[in-house]
Design a binder for these strands. Structure first.
Length: 607
RNA sequence: GCCAGCGUAGCUCAGGGGUAGAGCAGCGGUUUCGUAAACCGCCGGUCGUAGGUUCGAAUCCUAUCGCUGGCUCCA
């Protein structure tokens, strides 16, 4: 179908559509229909402005719509206002949308010269197809649509992009025009405001502003330099991660960054994963490769001794840095890079332990997400991909065990068909950040393949060798991507425990610097990351800069504080939390840090 | 990798065939101040890189590297 809106055609006059009376589902249905109609209007506008347009598809999408075209010349951003003006004319005219049902033969006649539409017609299952017309434009379309072009109340064309026909890079690239559309201008405005907020929180922008990390042409794209402040956040996350894993029965290990090519041939990476591998390097006549995954080192550690069923499960955890070749167009800040550190672990267990271990990992994953302030997430079960290793039975068995655990734990999940890794199926958890954007979070993969390829076994109660099962899992994903997610989730205003500088002591005049140092020492003794702004600047300037740096506690010291041996606390929200003793401020900050409280206020105000 | 756009000072940006500019940052000075930017001065760029067109290129053309928005892909 050229259009793919699931809702049904409504002939009702849009003017009678009381917004207040609409239920959320009805509203979504209406929005989908309206956005889809806007796509048709876009196509009509483009048709009237260009000759020889070949039409692709034009569906409604989240917040708006797009339409794909093949045009005689490339579109540039300057074309958008022109197309948009044409669309407004069509909307102003209030042209009715009309539907017709006809045979494929008739449709082929109408769409002669439209190769993409003809392709769609051929593939449609039914004998009859439907078309929609408004004004001079006719489209192959299942519908439904609004009654009239005049029903589009608030829209805007946003950007152009290339898009392969049917999303396949073997197909020709079409030009896609994106737009947003809402029921009212207010909703359109608030969507734009939300986007502006998202742009402010973008981790690439905040990464520079807060001096967290950088990427350099001289080093190469997708390769990250972590600055001191970003490194503090990373270290705090890593320390917390390690401690929690040790608590839960994992052993921390370290493995090399390169390994002989043969190892990667045995594992199947050379066959199934080559597009992501950096080319091998030759050392003393041997081929070596940068590791794209950490599993093989862990397998060899496991195999360094004969393991008994009594030893299992064995859980090896590593903050393992891996390198994968990503196509240049795919790179994005910290979220998609070429070298990254996974919070990886491999659990070697007996088949009867799989479900219990997966459940434990899910529990750990939930604990981690809650600690970092994520409460909204979606769970996906990814099944066998096209390129896979191993037998179908193994795939079925391991997929079933993942499914069992999800069901036993009563977790809502969706199936993501064909999205598993080449060696096994996986559970993916996608986090929603404070602005509702989703991020790839924890992932758990059951693997019967690598144990077979490497003969990973244990001696059972029966004295015989049995193949072990491996569970690959990360709970944060990678340090890079997770930090990107944290930066955007918190908008750079990290909770105290993660904040690179937890407290800034601000002496009002130079004569207060000595006392400020005393405060610094005292807090520093308490393990608080504290600094003194001892510049000969005005207090207002120091406050402003601490504020821009998003330091959770600004500790103001002047004559009053020196006299009373106290500190005046200013919080990031601008609130003056009053004068307190050094000891009491120190204790409160420590409590907030230890509690990993999400907001600095909690500990200061509620105690 | 593909399509489109963009690369000017550390950052944010102006300039668009006649030889480079602002604010912030940095540096030097003055100011010593009570909850988001004191004042004065100075330094700073072979305009991403390499070719080409031109009397003359930051400006036009080509190639290349990188970035941005998408497509594809993904920890």
């Amino acid at each position: 179908m050229s259009c793919s809106s699931p809702c049904c055609d409504s002939k009702s006059n849009s003017n009678q559509r009381g917004k207040l009376k609409m239920k959320p589902e009805e509203k979504n249905e209406y929005l989908g229909k309206m956005r889809h109609s806007a796509a048709h209007i876009l196509a009509q506008a483009v048709q009237s402005l260009f000759s020889g347009v070949k039409f692709g598809i034009g569906p409604a999408i989240e917040n708006g719509f797009y339409y794909d075209f093949e045009l005689p010349r490339p579109l540039t951003p300057e074309d958008l206002p022109v197309i948009e003006a044409k669309m407004r004319e069509i909307i102003h005219d209030g042209q009715p949308f009309t539907k017709e049902e006809l045979s494929k033969e008739e449709a082929r006649h109408i769409f002669a010269g439209q190769p993409f539409k003809l392709e769609l017609i051929t593939e449609l299952p039914d004998k009859m197809v439907t078309i929609y017309r408004q004004g001079t434009f006719t489209d192959l379309c299942r519908g439904p649509h609004v009654a009239s072009t005049g029903d589009i109340k608030a829209f805007s064309l946003t950007h152009i992009a290339g898009a392969y026909w049917r999303g396949d890079e073997k197909n020709p690239m079409l030009q896609r025009v994106y737009g947003i559309a809402f029921e009212t201008k207010d909703e359109l405005q608030s969507h734009l405001a939300l986007e502006a907020e998202a742009a402010k929180r973008n981790h690439r922008k905040l990464g520079r502003e807060l001096d967290l990390f950088s990427i350099h042409d001289e080093i190469g794209p997708g390769l990250i330099c972590w600055h001191p402040k970003g490194s503090i956040i990373r270290q705090v996350v890593e320390d917390f991660w390690k401690a929690e894993h040790i608590k839960r029965g994992y052993s921390i290990v370290y493995t090399p960054h390169i390994a002989k090519l043969d190892l990667w041939k045995t594992s199947g990476h050379w066959d199934f994963y080559r597009e992501y591998l950096y080319p091998p390097m030759k050392v003393e006549g041997q081929q070596y490769m940068l590791k794209p995954m950490n599993c093989l080192g862990h397998i060899l550690i496991f195999k360094s001794q004969t393991r008994s069923y009594r030893h299992l499960p064995l859980r090896y955890a590593e903050l393992g840095t891996v390198y994968r070749y990503e196509r240049s167009g795919a790179l994005y800040g910290l979220a998609r890079v070429r070298g990254f550190t996974q919070d990886d672990a491999h659990i070697f267990c007996r088949p009867d332990q799989i479900e219990g271990e997966v459940a434990e990992v899910l529990n750990l994953a939930q604990f981690m997400m809650h600690t970092f302030g994520f409460h909204d997430y979606d769970v996906f079960l990814s099944t066998r991909p096209e390129k896979y290793a191993g037998s179908l039975e193994m795939w079925e068995e391991s997929t079933a065990s993942l499914r069992n655990v999800l069901e036993q734990l009563n977790m809502d999940y969706k199936i993501d068909p064909g999205e598993g890794v080449f060696y096994g199926p996986k559970i993916d958890i996608k986090l929603k950040d404070a602005l509702g954007h989703t991020w790839q979070g924890p992932t758990i993969q059951v693997d019967f393949n690598l144990p077979l390829r490497f003969n990973v076994c244990y001696i059972g109660e029966d004295g015989q060798e049995h193949s072990a099962t491996m569970i690959h899992r990360t709970v944060l994903g990678s340090m890079e991507r997770f930090l990107a997610c944290l930066i955007e989730h918190y908008g750079g205003a990290f909770p105290v425990w993660l904040s690179p500088i937890q407290a800034m002591v601000i002496p009002i005049a130079d004569r207060h610097v000595d006392y400020a140092r005393e405060v610094e020492n005292e807090l520093s003794q308490g393990g608080i990351r504290v600094q003194v702004d001892d510049r000969s600047e005005r207090m207002n300037l120091k406050i402003r800069e601490a504020q821009v740096e998003k330091v959770p506690y600004m500790l103001i010291v002047g004559d009053k504080e020196v006299a009373s041996h106290g500190i005046s606390v200013r919080l990031l929200n601008g609130k003056d939390a009053g004068l307190e003793s050094i000891q009491s401020v120190k204790d409160r900050i420590k409590i907030a840090i230890e509690a990993k409280s999400q907001v600095a206020l909690e500990a200061v105000n509620n105690s």
